[in-house]
Design a binder for these strands. Structure first.
Lengths: 195, 195
DNA sequence: CCATTACTTGAACGCTCGTCCAAAAATCAC
DNA sequence: GTGATTTTTGGACGAGCGTTCAAGTAATGG
């Protein structure tokens, strides 16, 4: 009982994700969040605690959505190799072009906030590791079917791709035409070629 | 004539680099800079303009120092391949371990500030491109001597390594032990193997 | 229909931010 | 020594920050 909530918390988190993603943690004010979510600050404080707690909630939601999307992208196509290629191409597309300068919220947060906040650092670090863990079985499967290069350890290739994708999301924020991203993506795709 | 400056501008910029590097642009206040440089804010404003201008001056200095260091690292060892390997190993070491969470100021700036400031974006973007341009001749030379893999375009490998290194500096900020960095570095070194 | 409960509302708080500027201090030219 | 010139100094300013909270509002239980 009591007065019912006038907003959906997940919808608010989605708007908060957008805002933090586009603008960064420090550069977003609680009043900005008020404006973009349509929820007055008092209610935001009642629902989430404070700015940092709201950010962490948004970050966890983003990480979870991101993990779902990886599984989806890797399942694309007929073979495990298709999935890997699709994943890389989509990630490349996400950070190419003049209007794709948001990069990845996890990478942005790693750069801006992680060193100064152990809890946030743990969230981001675990997300990176989960991403690598999701790539490993796809790589192993593709190797088993001899669809990609077998010279490399699956774990090492997975780590390499995780680091590369985060690098693309950072470098992509500085280059509207993104020749570096494109070249680096082309190179990465050759890593998937069979022996 | 007139009262002489009581501080060296480059020394102030070096302290500012440290501060922005460790803490980020928005999270550093002019009073922090006052404390870390030992120069009162009025003098900072007189010498550099405002916080943003001081940041840009520091960023340009960092970029220039960084470019010098790349040339130095690539010149290490007996062969062009040694230089490339040394460059990657040092960059890996720079962002591995619990006390190396500053990453790279260019990457941090790309993530936090670049999307919202065209001038800063241009500085960072050009630095990335210059870095790639510095790698290309080393790669070509190593290929010509058949010291590394010749299957790949030098430009694409260079772009790949630039993006990878920026990725390492970002991912490294979240992992005190940095297994992802280590794996990805090991993988990158295999890319330098001869055919 | 009233007490209870939960959420909303927006004014207010103390603080810190980036920036400015008048006065004091240090140098040089003459 | 004196005036011109430049830098230093640190107090002050308005704006905006994250946060709090008392009052108002909408639902429920009896």
């Amino acid at each position: 009982m009591g007065r019912p909530k006038s907003f959906d918390e997940d919808a608010v988190l989605d708007r908060a994700i957008e805002q933090f993603w586009a603008t960064g943690y420090h550069a977003v004010s609680v009043r900005d969040l008020e404006a973009s979510t349509g929820v007055l600050k008092g209610s935001l404080y009642a629902a989430f605690g404070d700015k940092r707690a709201l950010f962490i909630a948004a970050l966890l939601r983003y990480a979870s959505q991101s993990a779902d999307q990886i599984r989806e992208l890797l399942a694309h196509g007929e073979t495990p190799r298709d999935g890997l290629e699709h994943y890389l191409r989509v990630r490349g597309r996400d950070c190419t072009g003049p209007h794709r300068t948001r990069g990845c919220l996890l990478a942005n947060t790693a750069a801006e906030v992680a060193p100064h906040d152990a809890e946030i650092r743990a969230v981001v670090g675990q997300s990176f590791e989960k991403l690598a863990d999701a790539l490993v079985p796809a790589i192993r499967a593709a190797q088993a079917q001899r669809l990609i290069n077998r010279r490399h350890e699956a774990k090492e290739l997975a780590a390499h791709l995780v680091v590369l994708v985060q690098g693309m999301s950072v470098v992509g924020k500085t280059e509207p035409d993104s020749s570096l991203i494109r070249s680096s993506l082309r190179f990465a795709l050759t890593l998937l070629n069979p022996d």
